[in-house]
Amino acid sequence: MNTTSWIDLNKDAQSGIETLRAHFKGHAYDPHWHDSYLVGFTEQGVQRFSCRRERHCSTPGTVFLLEPGEIHDGDAPSEEGFTYQMLYIEQHWLDKALGGLFENAPTDAQLSFARTLSHDPLLAQAIAQAFRSLHDGEMRMVNQAALDNLLTELTRQLHWRSRPLLDPRLPLVAHRARDFMHAHGTQDIGLDDLAKVTGVDRFRLTRAFKQAYGLSPHAYLVQWRLAQARQRLAAGEQPADVAMALGFADQSHLGRWFQRAYRLTPADYRKRCSNLPD
């Protein structure tokens, strides 16, 4: 491998999905195949590879989709090389995830990609969100929401997705989900827990919640935790204790979300909270 090439690989313990971000110059890899689905996009440069007896060139923002067993190689035709992000998704996880996300998903629903390359900004964005969430080890509900969004985009064109979603349970779903999050918001709850409590699949759950509150369930849970964090910090609690009490992985995890929302670190807020409007 070229000395200027690099690989950053991680694996999500919950889903088993591997996340890979890599940069290559010149020759990247010889022909090979994987027993998982490969879903990714080119971040920078031109990524050239052979698959399905065709030569492909993937440019920034282009999505590439490979099914298990498809042989492919890779190289960089330009001097600058290329950078890409990739998710390795196992079939057994996919079967279970689709069944939980969509009640009307056939039991034998397998993904089949008509094209190796796709110029789909929504799908590229969904891949990027899922990559960041899994690679950074986000909370369970955030990871599930990102993966659900990815599966929603990947299956958007499948015929069974076009069936109507009339469901008399939906008006109460959002309220039950919100009440459950208020009662268990400091625990590592997931969208599957909310789906079980409300009696609908995760797709209907998320749609009903967004319609009722203008936020997805995972975004609502994060905002609820941050509101609790503000109260605790204002009362003088230490950021590390607040993070532990509210279910964040650690103080830095709390800090990332806190700065996104308020442009302040938890420690800064604790010092200056008396001068900030609540």
Score class of each variant (00 low, 15 high):
residue 68 P to D: 03
residue 68 P to K: 07
residue 69 G to P: 08
residue 70 E to I: 05
residue 71 I to P: 01
residue 72 H to D: 09
residue 72 H to N: 04
residue 72 H to G: 03
residue 73 D to Y: 15
residue 73 D to W: 10
residue 74 G to D: 06
residue 74 G to H: 13
residue 75 D to A: 02
residue 77 P to S: 04
residue 77 P to E: 09
residue 78 S to F: 00
residue 78 S to E: 13
residue 78 S to P: 00
residue 80 E to I: 07
residue 82 F to T: 04
residue 83 T to F: 08
residue 85 Q to C: 10
residue 85 Q to K: 12
residue 86 M to C: 06
residue 87 L to N: 04
residue 87 L to C: 07
residue 88 Y to V: 02
residue 89 I to H: 00
residue 89 I to D: 01
residue 90 E to W: 01
residue 91 Q to L: 02
residue 91 Q to K: 07
residue 91 Q to M: 04
residue 92 H to W: 09
residue 94 L to R: 00
residue 94 L to W: 00
residue 94 L to M: 13
residue 95 D to Q: 14
residue 96 K to I: 07
residue 96 K to Y: 14
residue 97 A to S: 13
residue 99 G to F: 15
residue 101 L to F: 12
residue 102 F to S: 11
residue 102 F to M: 09
residue 104 N to C: 11
residue 104 N to D: 15
residue 104 N to P: 01
residue 104 N to Y: 02
residue 107 T to Q: 15
residue 107 T to L: 14
residue 108 D to K: 04
residue 108 D to H: 13
residue 108 D to M: 12
residue 109 A to D: 02
residue 109 A to Q: 12
residue 110 Q to T: 15
residue 110 Q to R: 12
residue 110 Q to N: 10
residue 112 S to N: 14
residue 113 F to G: 07
residue 114 A to E: 15
residue 115 R to H: 15
residue 115 R to W: 01
residue 116 T to C: 14
residue 116 T to V: 15
residue 116 T to Y: 02
residue 117 L to N: 04
residue 118 S to W: 03
residue 120 D to M: 01
residue 121 P to Y: 13
residue 121 P to C: 08
residue 121 P to A: 13
residue 122 L to D: 11
residue 123 L to W: 00
residue 124 A to W: 02
residue 124 A to D: 01
residue 125 Q to H: 10
residue 125 Q to N: 08
residue 126 A to R: 00
residue 128 A to M: 03
residue 129 Q to W: 03
residue 129 Q to M: 09
residue 130 A to H: 07
residue 130 A to E: 04
residue 131 F to D: 05
residue 131 F to T: 08
residue 131 F to K: 07
residue 132 R to P: 00
residue 132 R to C: 07
residue 134 L to M: 13
residue 135 H to R: 04
residue 138 E to T: 11
residue 139 M to I: 15
residue 140 R to A: 06
residue 141 M to Y: 08
residue 141 M to D: 05
residue 142 V to L: 05
residue 142 V to K: 06
residue 143 N to G: 03
residue 143 N to E: 13
residue 143 N to V: 02
residue 143 N to P: 00
residue 144 Q to N: 05
residue 144 Q to P: 08
residue 145 A to K: 05
residue 146 A to N: 05
residue 146 A to M: 05
residue 146 A to D: 02
residue 147 L to I: 15
residue 147 L to E: 02
residue 147 L to G: 01
residue 149 N to V: 04
residue 149 N to W: 07
residue 150 L to W: 00
residue 150 L to E: 02
residue 150 L to I: 02
residue 152 T to Y: 14
residue 152 T to G: 10
residue 153 E to Q: 14
residue 153 E to H: 13
residue 155 T to S: 14
residue 157 Q to H: 12
residue 157 Q to E: 14
residue 158 L to R: 12
residue 159 H to R: 09
residue 160 W to K: 07
residue 160 W to Q: 03
residue 161 R to V: 06
residue 161 R to C: 05
residue 162 S to E: 14
residue 163 R to I: 12
residue 164 P to K: 08
residue 165 L to Q: 11
residue 165 L to S: 11
residue 167 D to K: 01
residue 169 R to T: 04
residue 170 L to P: 06
residue 170 L to F: 12
residue 170 L to C: 10
residue 171 P to V: 10
residue 172 L to Y: 03
residue 173 V to A: 03
residue 173 V to E: 00
residue 173 V to I: 10
residue 173 V to C: 12
residue 175 H to Y: 07
residue 176 R to Y: 05
residue 177 A to G: 07
residue 178 R to L: 15
residue 178 R to F: 08
